[in-house]
Amino acid sequence: MQSVARIIAQRLGLGLVTLFFVSVIIFAAVNMLPGDFAQAILGQGATPEAVEAIRRDLGLDKPPITRYFDWLGGVLQGDFGTSFAAANFRSFTGAETGSGLGSVAAQVAPRFENTLFLAGVTAAIAVPFSLILGVLAALFRNSIFDRAANIGTLTSISSPEFFLAYILILFLAVLNPMLPSLSNIYADMSFGERLERTLLPALTLTLVVTAHMMRMTRAAIINLLASPYIEMARLKGISPLRVIVKHALPNALAPIINVIALNLAYLITGVVVVEVVFVYPGIGQLFVDSVKIRDIPVVQACCLIFAAAYILLNLLADILSILSNPRLRHPK
């Protein structure tokens, strides 16, 4: 067990280092903005107060390294700074500063929750569905079912998310009004209502993710079924079901975990476009909106959250597949 603990500690350390470098990149990228970007961002019409507020907020008078660690320190305490849009708005209306409404964290938190809900619903549908289909395609490879599945998944992977989204809207919202095409969600909605409004974006994401996951599962299982120990199990006269459950599955764990984690990580990217199509109030939409109005602190925060989730998922997959490897669990 000693060596497994050490390997996991190594991976965790590596993940942290990666995260650190990613934060450096995100911070440095923003600092590549030309000139006095407080002015550039707010445009010519901004009041001097707003410009001053942003300058102060960013601490533009300090050297970049100090600014970076100030920013990182804030992030670690859950403080992502103040949203430009909010600051601008305040400077025009003259509202009190420091009310908390303008802070990035307050803006991001509820939307992050919504996004997690969407991802959760998607995963709940996509994971079991694609695993079953993938295993079936592997078991009956080269059959008509397998070929049809191959063409279907390739088509689904190749289509942009918005194409799938509009087709679903066309059939399930416009032609047969079964589900709402706009996913406006409020904090005080009941779970059922919330689920209903999330279903269409979740189905769109499911289509994309299922295709990926199914293909990867199929490949992993085919690889596994070709191994001599599966042939050995068959030659021992074991029933087909037992061959799968007892001999294939324990060894399929690592690749399957990898497939799931990779695709959940993939969801992170897919969520952006889908949220925009359905006007789903998640972090993806906030991100795109902030990109358009160049609300730098929000963009930074969203980017960091996406990257952190991505790294975390990959790390989790890594660690779980190490744990499921008998060679590492039972060293010589």
């Binding site: 001599p228 030659l235 001999h247």
Partner: peptide, 25 residues
């Protein structure tokens, strides 16, 4: 019917034992 013979009355020894034993058990 074949399954009832395999392993019980007819057995197989493969070339590579390292690959033919399931690593998980």
């Amino acid at each position: 019917a074949k399954r009832h013979l395999l392993g019980k009355r007819i057995a197989y020894v493969a070339q590579s034992a390292a690959a033919s034993f399931n690593p998980a058990h």
